[in-house]
């Protein structure tokens, strides 16, 4: 397969996944902002979303105040913000457009009509119709893309690069959500009372609330939330689950110079496979997650260099 084709497929799936995770996070933040709380606490949650995406500067250039409406506008519909849902859906479609011959008709039509519909939605329309409906729509469209991919695409190299993109992006996004939310919820790492609603919201943002109940059948504790999202083998949005898939798909596309990337992926996976939450918390969750995200970035870089268009050239 052409390196450029693989590159487009990889980024196409990353952008869809990113749009979905962003919709999940915004949705939960929106819902919890409706629960009675201080204005300061509410705005802190919104600020966390900007921090999560390292967009403080771009945000400050456009808006002076951090509040729900501004952050939603910036992260949902802002055409200039390359990380907004609008931009992610556009970029997913642009990448798909460049390789539409490699996609199945169903996949292409799903991505194309997602973008055509998104393009028609102004921020005001989205808010008037209920922003929750919009997030639901983004999640459904993402599920539809994933579904048509799994249900119609030949499971060859194209499929493996799409899965690599999806899983790598999801690992990064889950780590970011956990990092920022954990920090907001336990700024001093104190062992005080935990806020059921806030932790519930964090779990819901990664579709983990029901999973948590099923796995632990117990009250929500921060340690277990971290354990579920980092180390659980079967939770589809956990870091371990994602890395397991990354290793598997990398093996399937391996070429003569991908050994080092394979080794790095295997190393990272084995930490998740054999790690314990106590040890991770001992290092400090923030420190551990920062290191994890750096290594995910390096993995992406390695994949680009070995198979795709090196990121330095692509820019």
């Amino acid at each position: 397969m052409l390196s450029r084709t693989a590159d487009h497929l990889f980024w196409m799936s990353r952008y869809i996944e990113r749009a979905e995770n962003l919709a999940r996070l915004l949705d939960v933040t929106w819902q919890t902002s409706l629960v009675p709380q201080s204005e300061e606490a509410a705005n802190q949650s919104w600020a966390a979303i900007i921090a999560l995406n390292s967009l403080e500067e771009a945000y400050a250039a456009k808006y002076s105040a951090v509040n729900g409406e501004n952050v939603l506008r910036f992260m949902v519909s802002d055409h200039d913000n390359y990380a907004s849902i609008h931009s992610c859906l556009r970029l997913a479609r642009e990448n798909a457009h460049a390789v539409r011959g490699t996609l199945t008709t169903e996949m292409w039509e799903t991505l194309n009509s997602t973008w055509l519909e998104a393009r028609e939605k102004s921020f005001e329309q989205i808010m008037n119709a209920g922003v929750g409906d919009f997030f639901e729509w983004v999640k459904v469209r993402s599920s539809l893309s994933r579904g048509t991919t799994i249900g119609t695409l030949l499971q060859d190299e194209a499929f493996h690069f799409i899965r690599l993109g999806t899983l790598l992006e999801r690992a990064d996004n889950t780590a970011r959500i956990l990092d920022v939310k954990y920090h907001v919820l336990r700024p001093h790492g104190d062992e005080g009372a935990t806020d059921f609603y806030q932790w519930g919201a964090l779990l819901r943002s990664v579709s983990g609330f029901e999973v948590y109940r099923k796995v632990y059948r117990d009250v929500i504790t921060p340690e277990r939330v971290a354990e579920l999202l980092i180390l659980h083998s079967d939770m589809p949005r956990s870091l371990r689950f994602c890395l397991s898939g990354v290793v598997k798909n990398l093996e399937l596309v391996a070429n003569s110079h991908s050994d080092e990337t394979m080794r790095q992926a295997g190393l990272l996976y084995s930490q998740l496979r054999y790690g314990r939450i106590e040890d991770i918390l001992k290092v400090g969750l923030h420190t551990w997650l920062t290191d994890f995200m750096d290594r995910i970035y390096l993995l992406g870089d390695g994949i680009s260099k070995d198979f795709l268009i090196p990121m330095s050239e692509a820019a």
Binding site: M1, R4, V99, G101, N255, S256
Partner: peptide
Amino acid sequence: VELVEGRDLFVKNDTVYMRTTQG
């Protein structure tokens, strides 16, 4: 067949190659 752009191709020893994931 593959749909290529100019940047996907290169010439070495008067022979044309495309850059693929397998080299």
